[in-house]
Amino acid sequence: MNLKQALLTFLENNLFLKNGTCPICGKVLFATDRFLCHQCEDDLPIISTPTCVQCGRPIFRANREVCSPCAKLNLPFAVGYTHLNYEDSGKKLVHAIKFKDRPHLGIWVGTQMGEAIAKYQWINHVDLIIPVPLHPHRLEERGYNQSEKIAEGIQQGLSQKHSRVPAIVTDILIRSRDTPHQIGQGREERLCNLTGAFNVETIEYIQNKTVLLVDDVLTTGATLAETSATLLEAGAAQVCIATLCAVAE
């Protein structure tokens, strides 16, 4: 760690709140009600191009409703929303939420997601919000589930636009088998690792319910496919997805 980073870490840990520095550029934030500096917030790669109706991934070809992965694969979720492209500051934001002990960032950006999702008609049919779970070992190591924090923010954002807000439930979908980090793995490897990794408890609670499944990053879609299939097999009527970031098709 160089001297500048050591000084910023000292300031953050001892003089400022947890959002004392911008997680993207490291600039000290004296207005502690902010979570990113003005420049980095303005530069977030919010998806503005047409998006896939099924997963929310950006589409760069005209006259298409679904992205290439969704067109090629029989994915079990019905519709979806993605907030950021998984590049540059989007990657840094996810890294800070997951590995830099900044769960409040997940809530903050999740609130923005909720406000955006409120504009979609399908959200009116959602009964439950379920974050993709961590295995207990990973949860103990990290101290929180980043997807749960994002879900909390989504719920807050929705509450600003709707009187009916779905409940967040974290004890129905369970990660019963720990799996290695999936970074650098292809879709087949990810699917193999995830097969049988999730199960549903209290099945009666999701019978005929429409679920909004929340995760941090959409890459191959393997995690969301496996969790969606698990919920549908247990009796859910439909699964929608919301992800903070997506890798472009």
Rank of each mutant, 00 (worst) to 15 (best):
P103A: 08
P103W: 00
P103S: 07
P103F: 00
H104G: 01
H104I: 11
L105E: 07
L105C: 05
L105F: 06
L105Q: 13
G106T: 01
G106F: 02
G106I: 02
I107T: 06
I107Q: 05
W108N: 05
W108G: 07
V109K: 00
G110Y: 02
T111K: 04
T111A: 10
Q112E: 14
Q112M: 10
M113E: 07
G114C: 13
G114M: 07
E115F: 00
I117G: 02
I117W: 07
A118I: 06
A118F: 10
K119I: 03
K119Y: 02
Y120K: 07
Y120N: 08
Y120C: 00
Y120W: 05
Y120T: 05
Y120V: 00
Q121G: 09
Q121Y: 07
Q121D: 15
I123M: 09
I123S: 03
I123Q: 12
I123P: 09
N124G: 15
H125C: 01
V126P: 14
V126I: 15
D127W: 13
D127E: 11
D127C: 13
L128Y: 15
L128I: 15
L128N: 07
I129D: 09
I130L: 08
I130T: 05
I130Q: 10
P131A: 09
V132C: 12
V132P: 08
V132W: 09
P133V: 01
H137W: 12
H137S: 15
H137L: 11
R138I: 02
R138H: 13
R138Y: 04
R138G: 01
E140R: 14
E140F: 01
E141C: 01
E141R: 02
R142T: 04
R142P: 10
G143V: 01
G143P: 03
G143A: 05
G143K: 08
Y144F: 15
Y144I: 05
Y144K: 03
Y144W: 13
N145W: 05
N145V: 07
Q146F: 07
S147P: 06
E148R: 05
E148K: 09
E148F: 10
E148H: 14
E148C: 08
K149I: 04
K149V: 05
K149E: 13
K149G: 01
K149Q: 13
K149L: 11
I150P: 12
I150V: 15
I150S: 01
A151T: 02
A151S: 13
A151K: 06
E152G: 07
E152T: 03
E152C: 07
G153E: 01
I154G: 04
I154W: 03
Q155D: 13
Q155G: 12
Q155M: 15
Q155A: 14
Q155R: 15
Q156P: 09
G157R: 00
S159R: 10
S159L: 14
Q160W: 08
Q160Y: 10
Q160A: 12
